[in-house]
Amino acid sequence: MRSRSPWSLLPVGLVGFVAAVGITFFADGPGGAVAASSQTTTPTTIAVDTSPSNIASGRTLFIENCSSCHGTNAEGSARAPSLLGLGAATIDFWVSTGRMPLAYPTAQAAEKPPLFDAKQTQAIVAYVTHLHPGGPGIPYVDVAAGDVSEGQILFSLNCAGCHTITGAGDALASGYYAPSLYPATATQIAEAMRTGPGNMPRFSPTQLTPAQLTDIVAYVHKYIQHPVDIGGLGLGAVGPVAEGFVALAIGVGLLMALAYWIGDRAVGPDAAPPKGDEGHGVTGAAGHAGH
């Protein structure tokens, strides 16, 4: 699930960066630096290795695994949309989260362990973007640079409405759902925001600047995925429903069991024998021990 951490992508991104082969889609972002302009500024996207050999291996993988629905040249079919011009971020998100290739058609593609490793994913991305350049590139996120306080405000405003404020995810209408944010890598979170997979709205650089994107990713990565549960068990982070079940089943239930334990007078041989009974044996003494 976590085969693609942002750090594993970093060398690839830097190599591509030096080669000045980048997808400079976000160059006009208000708060973002222009990619490929200088090595000292923060890049906004991670470039893809577009060497012919990589594209060739990507083509092989694509034809083997994707072309039956998306067509040999990613032009789409009656079953699946065209992938031309969707950009590196889209392809990388769907493949690296395991949503593609689809296991079976449902309202929403389910996340599962990815079929391809990082190198193979890169190759597929290179092949599809080679067919028709354009679209958002894989966003580069420096999680350490993010401001988690800004990120919390932006998350609360833009993300909590579907993914819930704890990021646990929740059901939407008609079989759609906002998935849990816990398994996503920093890059995948950024890709989802930039490309708007499925039902999710797309947040362009004019809506969320690269700096704001970084803030949100930092908050999700540091606090949603690793919540500060100083109060004890997190109970699934779904709020009062789980708490209510715990209060009733464990709180009231345990107290009822304790009431049953101490509430009844012992009957049978262990009970105190009636007055005048000569059989004050061991059991009789036990019956009086509490007095």
Partner: peptide
């Protein structure tokens, strides 16, 4: 984890206490 209440912010999966 919930953050402060801001009237134009909203979280999904909000329920009252049981």
């Amino acid at each position: 984890q919930y953050g402060p209440f801001i009237p134009y912010h909203v979280s999904y999966a909000v329920q009252p206490d049981w």
